[in-house]
């Protein structure tokens, strides 16, 4: 996770690599010890902790580290390769979703075939899934390890360890209704239409309902945080920081989501940003129709930020962004 993604906190210990990789840890260790031959792909959700896994590879392999930014190409990698092991972070920046946008990736894969040393690469999960489907990228990496969701206890431990002051954990008021979230839908009949709020059950709240009412509010809060963030430490930290005050209730843990449906262009743009995490505005021009308005709407919904022509995914919005694009079945 990049520090820029979560601001205003003291940096604490990262999750250990064995917890992050789960069952994949053994094969990762085998690659680092030389028992398995790479190249290796480390695949994870945005802000899920690819960084610490790659840090471990840099340390154990005494490798050269290359961090790719939006717009970087294979030349940036070639300039750093010195015949030894190399760790390349954020390889999703090697492609663009346009005609001719796979040239840098193709050149990188050609180079990969001729490198004898161990190469460890980090990939955004959504970019990896897309490239595996359309470019058979998974066939180029004999070893693939995936970042696993963290359990609630570990999320609690790591989030709280980042702060000097502990908030007070308070149980939710039983009279306070939080089981439903309201989304707006247009209902039309012939020439007449109206926007109607439709209540839908909140899965997180339903889980709380069936849980033991005597649970410690702290456990319930972090259980909810782990559920909402899908065990993603970066997202959990970002959601944690959206709350205010010295007290925290389980119902304070919520994903800020828009109550409107995204249209095709918005969902497509969001999917690209979800896969890239950070992207130049210029790279989206020509791919997304009506880019300025689309970005404006996504920014107003709190899904992305646009600063200095860089479009960034908001960490706390990842749990809302992923299902919004999955609904449209955008690859």
């Amino acid at each position: 996770m990049k520090d820029s993604a979560v601001k205003g906190r003291r940096r604490g210990p990262e999750a250990d690599v064995s917890t992050l990789l789960g069952d994949d840890h053994e094969v990762f260790k085998a690659v680092l010890s030389g028992e398995e031959v790479g190249p290796v792909a480390v695949v994870g959700d945005p802000f899920s902790g690819r960084g610490p896994v790659l840090d471990r590879a840099v340390r154990d392999l005494d490798a050269t580290r290359v961090s790719l930014d939006p717009g970087d190409g294979v030349d940036r990698i070639r300039a750093r390769i010195d015949g030894g092991p190399v760790v390349i972070e954020d390889c999703q920046h090697l492609y663009e979703r346009r005609i001719g946008g796979f040239e840098e990736l193709s050149a990188f894969l050609d180079d990969l075939a001729s490198i004898d040393a161990t190469v460890v690469t980090g990939w955004n999960r959504y970019a990896w899934a897309y490239l595996a489907a359309v470019q058979s990228l998974d066939r180029e990496f004999p070893v693939t390890v995936e970042i696993q969701p963290l359990p609630a206890e570990r999320v609690a431990e790591l989030v709280l360890d980042r702060y000097d002051v502990m908030p007070a954990f308070v149980a939710d008021d039983p009279e306070r209704g939080g089981s439903f979230v309201s989304t707006r839908h247009e209902i039309g009949w012939r020439d007449w239409s109206v926007s109607v709020p439709i209540p839908t059950l909140s899965p997180v709240a339903v889980k709380d309902l069936f849980s033991d009412g005597n649970l410690d509010p702290k456990d319930v809060t972090f259980g909810r945080l782990a559920t909402v963030s899908n065990g993603n430490l970066g997202v959990a930290t970002a959601i944690w920081e959206t709350r205010h005050g010295s007290e925290v209730r389980p119902s304070d843990i919520a994903v800020a989501a828009s109550d409107r449906d995204l249209d095709r262009e918005e969902a497509f743009c969001l999917r690209i940003v979800l896969a890239k995490e950070r992207i130049n505005r210029a790279q989206l021009t020509g791919i997304v129709d009506g880019l300025d308005r689309v970005l404006g709407r996504l920014a107003r919904d709190g899904l992305v930020t646009v600063e200095d022509d860089i479009v960034e995914l908001v960490p706390a919005a990842v749990p809302a962004a992923a299902p919004a694009t999955d609904r449209g079945r955008i690859l």
């Binding site: 979703r97 346009r98 005609i99 001719g100 946008g101 796979f102 489907a133 359309v134 470019q135 095709r264 262009e265 497509f268 791919i287 079945r329 955008i330 690859l331």
Partner: peptide, 11 residues
Amino acid sequence: EAMVTSKYVYV
């Protein structure tokens, strides 16, 4: 590439 980069494609 035009097909696989389309916003409508499913692979």
